[in-house]
Design a protein around this nucleic acid. Structure first.
Length: 400
DNA sequence: TCTGGGGTCCTAGGACCC
DNA sequence: TCTGGGGTCCTAGGACCC
């Protein structure tokens, strides 16, 4: 039976949500009505455009470019910083509203959902439901969404990306040729800045060109990715709406440093702050890590990383810090570093991890210490009590 | 005051084993 | 004498997404 899939995408999510929040908190100006952007912190060298108003878009401002470039295009663009907590709050409101329609909802990101409506339609059509959802989101939550309708996730997602804002589009199999094959290949999901030029060199310029290309040749050149891009171009996607909770496979944090750092001691201090945060998040998920990965970005944007297995899977701050320090020290050759990252990988649920025979007294002590500190963080805020905080480096790093 | 941060998945090559 | 082949695990790097 043909599935009934809906993809919902919040228009200019970060900017719209921040606009509503401001209005609710007594601000007069609706930043959706002026040239405005949500951007990162320029003083911390994180000054990129994260979202833009429709008016800012008319000036040619695009997501991902620097705020510096955005200002050149529109000198009086207003820049706001936004807040992830606010985004989360509105994302949750949307999710709750959608639960009125189906519980088969995949939260693909903070501002995108897939809905499997196959078993929830009764007499009404998918289009009826989409219209109702759009209306209710407008009236009850105060923002707009684009909705894509089709028989699989890929096509629904492509559809929601058509004309914006506040629009509903269909992209059923019989519409692929007319609505999708005419688009340039860069519009196809999963084709990014590295692959598009390669396809151009093969004289594949539209999604239609790709759909009609020789699949064997694509697999030859791109491996598994070649098969997927050919299938997507032909509107083939058998994946299910992943509505069940899934445990994270990795948890990491990274930070762009306010200034390049060129000595190991200082890098180690930043690493401690990262370790503390990553381990804290692991414990909140009740997960333990088998592998630790440390990454560096040099001042000229060269990325490299080292990873290593832990002797015992853990979520202890100290153990994670010591492992990451070992990795950092083995890889660092004195470059000027712009960004440092720490990622806990190959995670398993703590309850699934075998009760370690090697669990030493010291580890139990660490676990207890971490637990105490976590409780204080819950009570008084994350930054109230950090090991790294003592070193005064928190101001270099931003945590939620 | 030029370029975020959090993720997932894939691949190539080396080590090691039989 | 002149160099297998399959399988698995591990690591570094990279592509892509929002």
């Amino acid at each position: 039976m043909e599935r009934q899939i809906m993809h919902i995408d919040v228009n200019n999510a970060f900017l719209s949500w921040f606009a509503i929040w401001r209005l609710k908190n007594g601000e007069e100006i609706d930043i959706r009505e002026i040239p405005s952007i949500i951007g990162g912190d320029e003083s911390r060298r994180a000054g990129i455009v994260l979202a833009k108003s429709n008016i800012a878009k008319q000036f040619g401002i695009v997501t991902g470019e620097t705020i510096f470039q955005a200002r050149k295009k529109c000198p009086n663009v207003k820049v706001f910083q936004g807040d992830y907590k606010i985004y989360r709050e509105y994302s949750d409101k949307l999710y709750k509203l959608l639960l009125d329609y189906t519980d088969k909802i995949e939260r693909y990101s903070v501002d995108e959902c897939f809905l499997d409506m196959t078993e929830y339609l009764m007499k009404s059509t998918l289009m009826d439901k989409a219209k109702e959802i759009r209306k209710r989101v407008n009236e009850e939550l105060g923002f707009t969404v684009n909705i894509g309708l089709s028989s699989n996730k890929l096509l629904a997602k492509m559809a929601s990306d058509f004309e914006k804002p506040n629009k509903i589009h269909t992209l059923y199999t019989n519409e692929i040729e007319e609505k999708m094959w005419t688009l340039p290949i860069r519009d196809l999901f999963m084709l990014g800045r590295k692959t598009v030029p390669k396809l151009y060199n093969m004289n594949i310029k539209t999604i239609g060109d790709l759909a009609k290309a020789d699949i064997e040749q694509l697999i030859n050149k791109f491996g598994k990715h070649g098969k997927i891009m050919w299938e997507y171009a032909n509107g083939i996607d058998l994946s299910d709406v992943a509505y069940k909770y899934e445990e994270p496979k990795s948890i990491g944090n990274s930070t762009t440093l306010a200034k390049d750092i060129q000595d190991l001691e200082s890098l180690n201090e930043v690493l401690l702050a990262l370790a503390e945060h990553v381990a804290y998040r692991l414990r909140k998920y009740n997960m333990i890590a088998n592998v630790i990965n440390v990454g560096l970005r040099t001042k000229d944007f060269k990325d490299f990383s080292h990873q290593g297995k832990l002797y015992i899977p853990t979520a202890n701050t100290k153990d994670i810090y010591l492992k990451s320090k070992e990795l950092l020290n083995s890889m660092y050759k004195g470059e000027a570093i712009r960004l440092i990252s720490l990622r806990a990988d190959k995670l398993i649920n703590k309850n699934e991890g075998q009760i370690s025979l090697f669990n030493t007294k010291d580890e139990k002590k660490q676990e207890k210490l971490d637990k105490t500190l976590d409780e204080l963080k819950e009570k008084y805020g994350y930054l109230s009590i950090t090991r790294a905080g003592k070193l005064g480096i928190e101001k270099n790093i931003k945590f939620k």
